[in-house]
């Protein structure tokens, strides 16, 4: 019986394909895309000023409000600036670390280093951000306590603090894909470049960097998109700054249509981002 079903299936590739695809497609399209679509449609609705109930009547009022109020342009630019800075900082920190882990450290210490980089992922997000509060507290924080004597002071709470905090949170997500990419890179390639007379940096720039570029982009997906949607870090160490996520969160329950309108902004940004990087092969390196 089992045998015959299996043979029967084997002879019908279309059927097998359907069986394989049905559940995941249904899940992603119905549970995810459907929910997302419903939300984006809500962006064109409005609410009853008295009861707060949603009125399902098409209008562009929310978009008009967002486009005419410079505050929303500010928050979009600020959030983008933060997300880009976080991505750059993570990349700058991650590339040498991943290179050291993959190509210089001995086999045994390699394992330990990977573990050391992974460990903070298991300490809770919130706890880590609160630790950064203790770190960055002006005058009485850990940073001023350690680095104050050599003249480096905490930037206080605000934009720089958000960038530091988010870089800290997402750094492992950048290191690991790059490390995996470098590990796949045969040592012989670097040797060949060296044998041909290339200097360290030249080898790195012309040989290593192009090859790990997809991994770098894959890591940036995490650092960029996670930063783009964050609102908790800004609440805790952002001083008086807000990010896009805060605005969405603030409006979510009182005025869902308006929150949905704001939410279209990061969706659009990520859509453009995905479109730009789809050729790099990064999506498969996540």
């Amino acid at each position: 019986m089992k045998n015959s079903v299996s043979t029967w299936m084997h002879k019908r590739p279309k059927l097998r394909l359907t069986a394989l695809l049905a559940a995941p497609t249904l899940w992603l399209v119905v549970a995810y895309l459907g929910a997302l679509g419903a939300l984006l449609i809500t962006a064109f609705f409005t609410i009853d000023n008295f009861t707060g109930n949603i009125i399902a009547k098409f209008n562009l009022g929310n978009f008009h409000d967002i486009l005419t109020d410079p505050a929303y342009r500010n928050v979009v630019l600020r959030t983008l600036g933060i997300a880009v800075s976080v991505t750059i900082i993570c990349a700058v920190l991650a590339v040498p670390m991943a290179f050291f882990m993959a190509k210089i450290a001995k086999q045994k210490s390699q394992k330990i280093l990977v573990a050391l980089v992974l460990t903070p992922l298991w300490a809770s997000y919130l706890v880590k951000i609160y630790a950064w509060r203790t770190m960055l507290e002006p005058n009485t924080g850990v940073m001023d306590w350690i680095l104050g004597p050599i003249g480096i002071h905490s930037p206080g709470f605000g934009g720089p603090a958000i960038i530091i905090g988010l870089s800290y949170l997402w750094l492992p997500y950048m290191i690991l894909p790059i490390y995996a990419g470098l590990e796949r890179l045969p040592n012989s390639l670097l040797d060949a470049s060296g044998d041909l007379g290339a200097r360290n940096f030249y080898t790195f720039r012309r040989v290593v960097l192009p090859l790990i570029f997809p991994s770098l982009v894959a890591g940036s997906m995490f650092t960029f998109s996670l930063s783009l949607g964050d609102y908790i870090t800004a609440q805790i160490i952002g001083g008086k700054l807000q990010m896009l996520g805060n605005v969405v969160y603030q409006n979510f329950s009182i005025n869902l249509p308006f929150a949905a309108t704001i939410a279209t902004i990061p969706v659009a940004i990520m859509a453009i981002y995905l479109w730009l990087i789809r050729r790099t092969g990064a999506l498969a390196s996540l």
Binding site: P24, L36, T42, S225, V248
Partner: peptide
Amino acid sequence: LVVLPISLPGVVTGIALSNA
């Protein structure tokens, strides 16, 4: 599509699902 849920901000996924 499979990459979308992780690449869109959690707050968007969150309110979309909650709304749904």
